[in-house]
Amino acid sequence: MNKEVVKATKNLALWTILWVASLALATFGPKFLWEENTILSILTIAINSALGAGMIWANVKHLSVLDELQKKIQLDAMGIALGVGIVGGLSYSVMDISNVISSNAEIGFLVMLISISYMVALLIGKKRYA
């Protein structure tokens, strides 16, 4: 891996860690740290959104420094994850609306579905061109 790719990968990892940490703070802070203080909750959500924007920018930057095969593998995996997310997410939502499932549809399941399908597609792509 060349230095530019290593730098962009580390940058993306840093933004992702910061975003996940801020998401945890925004999620659990109101209950465990500041007892439902609305101003602090809005502030942490705003920080989380800003860090999320930074993470998206870092992801775009990361893609831009990859070579053509690495880019193809990443974009194929992202396309599959997006498709699985839309189809799976809407099916899951319909199951909730039509009471096929007893519990309410949770956004967390959609995030897990997208993440897992992205990782599996990425591994398959890496193996295919190895």
Binding site: M1, N2, V5, D67, E68, L69, Q70, K72, K126, R128, Y129, A130
Partner: peptide, 25 residues
């Protein structure tokens, strides 16, 4: 790979005929 500024995996995939390079490459 270093000479062409791509990864070793890309060179390997091209040599094995698994991936066709772009025109610039």
């Amino acid at each position: 790979a270093d000479s062409l500024a791509v990864s070793r995996q890309t060179i390997n995939a091209i040599e094995k005929g698994k991936f066709d390079p772009s025109l610039p490459l």
